[in-house]
């Protein structure tokens, strides 16, 4: 069974529109490596019409030494749209109708997992049909105030399980644990703020300069 993996650049206030305008200043090697491995470990893209059109207008013209552009251009792509007549980006199929059935069918076919970038309306439909298996969110240190949100209003409640929480480029491997209350003082060994008592699953990290983006990975609880 192939998973549907929604992966987004998102502001603290949940906005995913036009990340090229606000996310690039925070780019670093770890984000680059993560995005590269993500693309190469997934077998297809599933996109909404708007994100598809943006990508189709830009990626075919791009080349890069890492092979990212080559991979995204050549891999199978599906675009969900009731209005799109033709999809000229190579290896793209249009899903015109019965989105939930088509995506459910796609999940049963052999292949690596399927990535969804951007595409807020599609994410809404997929969530409504309970077809999303994973959310991979890169949370950026900005409140944008306006723009298209990742999650739209009007669906039911869904509980999630946190699979991963990591500062990208940050002190993920630091042995001493620090937290925000201790941030003004020296790095604290152990949990002195808590009387040395261990905290279940309590991983605390103090951010380092240049590491501003937090990766959060969730899967729905079933």
């Amino acid at each position: 069974m192939r998973n549907i993996v929604v992966t987004e650049f998102v502001s603290l206030d949940g906005i995913i529109e036009a990340p090229e305008r606000w996310s690039l200043a925070y780019w670093n090697d770890e984000i680059s490596r993560f995005k590269h491995e993500e693309l190469f470990s997934h077998g297809a893209l599933l996109l909404g019409r708007g994100t598809y059109l943006n990508f189709a207008a830009s990626w075919p013209k791009q080349k890069d030494s890492t092979g990212y552009a080559n991979r995204i251009n050549s891999m199978p792509k599906f675009v969900a749209s009731t209005t799109l007549q033709a999809a000229e980006w190579q290896n793209t199929q249009i899903i015109h109708s019965n989105l939930a059935e088509e995506v459910a069918l796609l999940k049963t076919q052999p292949g690596q997992d399927i990535l969804v970038f951007g595409s807020p309306n599609l994410v809404h439909s997929l969530r409504e049909a309970d077809l999303i298996d994973r959310y991979q969110l890169l949370v950026y240190p900005v409140i944008l105030g306006k723009g298209k949100s990742m999650f739209q209003d009007g669906l039911g409640k869904a509980e999630l399980e946190l699979l991963e929480c990591r500062v990208m480029g940050g002190a993920a491997d630091s042995s001493g644990s620090t937290d925000t209350e201790a941030a003004d003082s020296e790095a604290v060994e152990g949990d002195t703020a808590n009387g040395g008592k261990s905290k279940p699953g309590g991983q605390r990290r103090k951010a380092v300069p240049g590491a501003q983006v937090v990766l959060l990975v969730y899967q729905p609880k079933h």
């Binding site: 206030d13 900005v142 306006k146 620090t178 905290k199 699953g201 309590g202 605390r204 951010a207």
Partner: peptide
């Protein structure tokens, strides 16, 4: 966070993961 006219830039100061997610 409501709709705002200006964006607010932040600086990440810390991340803490709790056992309950």
């Amino acid at each position: 966070f409501k709709i705002m006219s200006d964006k607010i830039k932040l600086e990440l100061a810390g991340v803490r993961q709790f056992g309950n997610g």
